[in-house]
């Protein structure tokens, strides 16, 4: 049986960082949709919670002067997919946010919690990998910017240092400007189910050629991954049927899919091949191209 001994609710980030540095054993709670389930399952014994919900501005979404988009870690999934900046500049993140959970979970769950929980199935992860997002990690005496692609450490593990809080997710202009894309979540049920497999494609295409292509996969390895071999192969190539099929094969090779009750390794590999191709074709279509 678990026991919550206390809940701290600081109202400024500085206060939160001070509390966390004084006691790194505090458990951060954002929306609580992972933490409370983990408590129920007996993952912790006595735990003192550090809640981020009262800290102002941690849920802001803004377009900075240099075109960088900043998403506050405490932005809920509902808040994210209803936001005009996200819909206009990061439509693939809108797609990912809408695909997550059901309405109630999307109202509670935060995007920062989704990342920091480290699940391979996290619906925000493949899209943020493909947008080359940076994470702003703040502690009492340090601020570091870490590419999300370097943040995951293994199933359910991320590289947060003691005392560190994720405050913002940042996407620079060159990473979304003139890009199109598509997120496909494949699951047994259409609602309230986590992904058996997920693919996020972001690309820049011009005159029938891939200038840039980024493919990221969820539930295909111990962490979300990028398919660099497939991406490098595609660059500069025209998008013929054969090229896209070869990209699908490369994507499959990047993965280390596993057997699980949700799906077998062989089925997952098939999905990676087929769904990457499907997402690429949709992205090309959205860019006004034909393939």
């Amino acid at each position: 049986m678990y026991n919550i001994t206390n809940i701290l609710e600081p109202i400024t980030l500085n206060e939160a960082l001070r509390m966390y540095s004084d006691n790194p054993k505090l458990k951060i709670i954002a929306g609580g949709s992972d933490v409370l389930i983990q408590l129920n399952h007996g993952k912790f014994d006595d735990v003192e919670l550090l809640s981020l919900r009262k800290i102002k501005n941690l849920n802001n979404i803004s377009l900075l002067e240099d075109g960088t988009i900043s998403i506050g870690a405490m932005s809920s999934f509902s808040n994210t997919f209803r936001n005009e900046i996200i819909n206009k500049y990061l439509p693939v993140l809108t797609e990912a946010a809408v695909s997550m959970g059901g309405p109630q979970i999307r109202n509670m769950a935060t995007i920062g919690g989704n990342i920091c929980n480290g699940a391979v199935s996290a619906d925000s992860a493949p899209t943020l990998f493909s947008y080359n997002a940076f994470l702003k990690l703040v502690s009492i005496d340090n601020i570091r910017m870490v590419p999300i692609n370097d943040f995951y450490d293994g199933p359910g593990r991320v590289k947060l240092q003691p005392g560190e809080i994720l405050t913002e997710i940042l996407i620079t202009k060159e990473n979304y400007h003139k890009m199109t894309g598509n997120y496909i979540k494949f699951s047994n049920r259409e609602a309230m189910d986590i992904a058996m497999l997920s693919v996020a494609v972001i690309c820049n295409v011009e005159n029938g050629v891939f200038n840039d292509l980024r493919i990221s996969l969820g539930v295909s390895a111990p962490t979300p991954i990028r398919c660099y071999d497939a991406e490098n192969y595609a660059k500069g190539k025209s998008f013929s049927k054969e090229t896209i099929e070869t990209i699908g094969q490369y994507a499959k090779k990047s993965a280390k899919a596993r057997n699980s009750w949700r799906g077998s390794k062989a089925y997952r590999e098939h999905l990676i091949n087929i769904l990457s191709q499907r997402a690429i074709k949709e992205a090309i279509k959205r860019a006004g191209g034909k393939c």
């Binding site: 809940i7 709670i29 509670m108």
Partner: peptide
């Protein structure tokens, strides 16, 4: 104004 699952919210929160 928003629906939540009251089994996943602490009363203190």
């Amino acid at each position: 104004g928003k629906t939540v699952n009251s089994c996943l919210v602490l009363a203190a929160s």
